Amino acid sequence: MMRPKLAFAMSPEKTRHVFNAALLSRLSACCDVVATSPLQNLDSAESRAILADTEVLVTGWGCPMLSPAILRTASKLRLIAHAAGTVKFTVDPSAYARGIRVTHAAEANAVPVAEFTLAAILFANKRIFEFRDLYQADTSRRSSHRLMDENVGNFGRTIGLVGASRIGRKVAALLQHFDFEVLLYDPFVQPGDPVTAGADLVDLDTLMARADVVSIHAPSLPNNRAMIGPRQLELMQDGATLINTARGALVDEAALLRELRSGRIQAVIDVTDPEIPPPDSLFFSLPNVFLTPHIAGAIGTERGRLGLMAVEEVERFVRGDTLLYEVEPALLERLA
């Protein structure tokens, strides 16, 4: 049986650590690798010649859009294995009409986001950054001791999860190891869903009003834009924390900054809209904001998990086994 021909399409600068030597060796063991250097300009004559012979295309961050014209060039293509998260900005829907199968590594990218979120929840309830600032300003620890007598700590706190995405579900599972009450808002989750075994389904306003920490895990879709608006933010308890590792567009940031300026709530923000705020944005200067540059997802060595998942899917495809992370056309509209 002839082995399928495989090529890569991604940006080497953005995908360092995704495929190490061991993973590349596994791909070579099940496929004939047409070109080891990733394709970056799919319109070049060289790229088109490679694509015309490719049956398995491994894509990643920096891959140009696989447009209908490009897909027509890749006339033998049978599988697109995306070694990253969403495929909405990489794969044109016409791929499905061609019978091309698509798989992605969003499940792998969800792992570090869930870990980051858990750490943020634990630190937020412990008010760790406030303690740091107090200690730096008052080495006698008197002000730190006063804060210890307030409503701080992780025992018996209420955590609200907005969205039962793959990340939201991973966070919910991690929270079961702690003494938390977990609330969940997701209009697509029905009673009896496995996630409800560890989280109580509530409406969004109830979640915002009751949670000590609100963590956002909804997809960024047109109907979700600014879903956390002035009303929801005003419902948050004094001293509560908002965590956003999803997308900045899900939050009305002007309303959020108004609440933050009052000092009434705190925020852990990994994503903003726009992706990089203006230099004079209060996100950079408010003491009750912990801002990070979109690092919750796979960075550094964590990217190796993306490559591993893509390689395992290619191996399943070659063996004729069921793909575990196939992207079905019907799910595209609900993907982030």
Rank of each mutant, 00 (worst) to 15 (best):
M2V: 12
M2R: 14
P4L: 01
P4S: 05
K5E: 15
A7P: 10
F8Q: 03
A9T: 06
P12D: 09
T15R: 10
A22H: 11
L24E: 12
S25A: 15
L27M: 08
C31H: 08
C31G: 07
V34Y: 06
T36W: 13
P38A: 00
Q40D: 05
E46F: 10
L57G: 00
T59N: 04
W61S: 04
P64K: 06
M65H: 09
A69I: 12
A69S: 15
L71R: 04
L77D: 11
L77Q: 11
R78W: 05
A83G: 03
A83K: 02
A84Y: 02
G85L: 05
K88V: 12
K88C: 12
F89T: 15
F89I: 09
F89W: 13
A97E: 15
A97T: 13
R98G: 10
R101W: 04
V102G: 06
A105D: 03
E107W: 12
N109A: 12
A110V: 06
E115D: 15
A119K: 07
L122G: 03
A124C: 04
A124N: 01
K126H: 10
I128Y: 02
F129D: 10
L134Q: 01
D138A: 06
T139D: 13
R141E: 14
D149Q: 14
N151A: 15
G156P: 06
R157H: 08
T158N: 08
G160M: 05
G160Y: 05
G160D: 05
G160P: 08
L161D: 01
A164M: 10
S165N: 03
G168T: 06
K170H: 12
L175R: 01
F178M: 03
D179R: 12
D179F: 10
F180K: 01
F180E: 03
F180W: 05
L183M: 11
Y185V: 06
Y185A: 02
D186H: 07
D186R: 06
D186V: 08
Q190P: 01
G192N: 03
D193H: 15
V195M: 09
D200N: 14
L201P: 05
D205M: 11
M208N: 07
M208D: 07
M208P: 09
A211D: 08
A211P: 02
V214K: 02
I216G: 00
L221P: 02
N223A: 14
P230F: 00
Q232S: 10
L233C: 07
E234L: 14
L235A: 10
D238Y: 07
G239M: 07
A240W: 04
T241P: 00
E253N: 13
A254R: 13
A255H: 09
A255P: 07
R258T: 14
E259V: 04
R261F: 05
G263F: 02
I265S: 00
I265W: 03
Q266C: 13
V268N: 00
I269W: 00
I269V: 10
I269T: 02
T272A: 10
D273Q: 14
P274H: 09
I276C: 08
P277V: 03
D280C: 03
S281R: 08
L282H: 13
L286T: 07
N288Q: 11
P293V: 08
P293Q: 01
H294G: 04
A296D: 03
A298E: 03
I299E: 12
G300Y: 10
R305N: 13
M309G: 01
A310M: 09
R316M: 06
F317H: 01
G320N: 11
T322Q: 14
L323P: 09
L324G: 11
L331V: 14
R334F: 14
A336D: 14
